[in-house]
């Protein structure tokens, strides 16, 4: 097993009485793209700032390539950070913004000119060297901020909501560019985001943070299909949460006319809307009959709100080619037994 690029061991941080990070441990492998996903107050930004050196951890260790960097000031840490507001130097041109880090490292001038030109070419900003940040669009500023950090070739790049300030149209494209850049440079990326779609689309592994603790850490598919907790299931897209009373024979009652046969016993189960199919006859223990309450068209299909006999409400994704049922109609729903994800909390 290769050595971890970044290793956090029991990192704890308190702001006054609030516990921002609660003995959090996490590993990032070389060349890996990790997304830290969480709501506001989950501690994800604090974690990033502790790695960058802007906040000091109360307890725990921060190891970069096996070296404890916890005591180093920000300027002595080999990691680099892309700020949410980009934090470009407003009084410097694009060239000098990108050259800033190289000049601090004492790189020779011809070498600086070469590497800045190369970095700007990488993000299609040739010819913008003499502009000031105020003369750039939001997307251009974001790219300048990105190469300003990358030009130093850091082994680990930290990104604080890098797409947060862009408008929706630009986000997807910039996200893919970000990923391509990460592949091209081979640097480890740790990106903080509150956008689950962004995290799932870009990251090799996603760490879901909740109240300063790591709720789950794994590849996007695993987090989506096999969420460990109710929080993860609900945070990563829509999920129907099924709770029920377990019967001695192993089946679980999830309301009137609803019986589950889960793979293993758990306090609750998650069922994704797109794992539910419309069938002619609801099968026992893997299906239920429900009444359609509302229907919303989403372009790639329909999202149906259905009411179960017991009163619970589920969301069901229906394909676009299906003729939409009328509200009030009785729908027979079915799912594969393995689509039920047991939730432990």
């Amino acid at each position: 097993m290769a050595e971890a690029l970044l290793r956090l061991e029991g990192v704890t941080k308190r702001f006054g009485a609030t516990l921002a990070l609660d003995a959090l441990s996490l590993e990032v492998m070389p060349g890996e793209f990790v997304a830290l996903l969480g709501g506001s107050g989950s501690g994800k930004s604090t974690l990033l700032r502790i790695v960058a050196g802007f906040e000091a951890a109360e307890a725990g260790r921060v190891l970069l390539q096996g070296r404890d960097i916890g005591a180093l000031p920000p300027h002595a840490r080999p990691v680099s950070m892309v700020f949410q507001s980009y934090a470009l130097f407003p009084h410097l041109t694009v060239f000098h913004n990108v050259a800033y880090g190289l000049r601090r490292d004492g790189v020779a001038r011809p070498e600086i000119a070469r590497r800045v030109a190369e970095a700007l070419a990488m993000v299609g900003l040739e010819g913008f060297e003499a502009r000031k940040p105020a003369q750039l669009s939001g997307g251009q500023r974001q790219r300048v901020a990105l190469v300003r950090s990358l030009v130093k070739r850091p082994p680990l790049l930290l990104l604080d909501e890098p797409l947060g300030a862009l408008d929706a149209g630009l986000r997807e494209r910039t996200g893919l560019e970000l990923r391509a850049l990460q592949r091209a440079t081979g640097a480890g990326f740790v990106m903080v985001t509150h956008d689950q779609a962004e995290a799932l689309a870009l990251a090799d592994r996603v760490a879901v943070l909740q109240e300063g603790r790591l709720a789950q850490y794994g590849p996007p598919q695993v987090l989506y299909e096999r969420p460990a907790t109710r929080h993860v299931a609900e945070f990563l897209g829509a999920a129907n949460i099924l709770e029920g009373r377990a019967r001695p024979d192993g089946a679980v009652e999830c309301g009137a006319g609803c019986l589950l046969r889960p793979p293993r016993a758990a306090p609750a189960y998650a069922l994704r809307p797109e794992r539910i199919r419309l069938v002619a006859q609801a099968p026992a223990e893997k299906g239920v009959t429900a009444r359609l309450k509302d229907l919303a068209y989403r372009g790639d299909g329909w999202l149906a709100m259905v009411a179960l006999p017991g009163g619970a409400e589920w969301r069901v994704a229906l394909p676009a080619d299906a003729a939409p049922p009328a509200p009030g109609a009785a729908l027979s729903l079915a799912w594969a037994a393995e689509s039920l994800a047991p939730l432990d909390a």
Binding site: G53, F54, P74, S80, A87, L88, F89, Y100, G101, R148
Partner: peptide, 10 residues
């Protein structure tokens, strides 16, 4: 943040 960015860049 601009000053933090400068520190971050060395």
């Amino acid at each position: 943040a601009v000053e933090e960015a400068a520190a971050d860049l060395g």
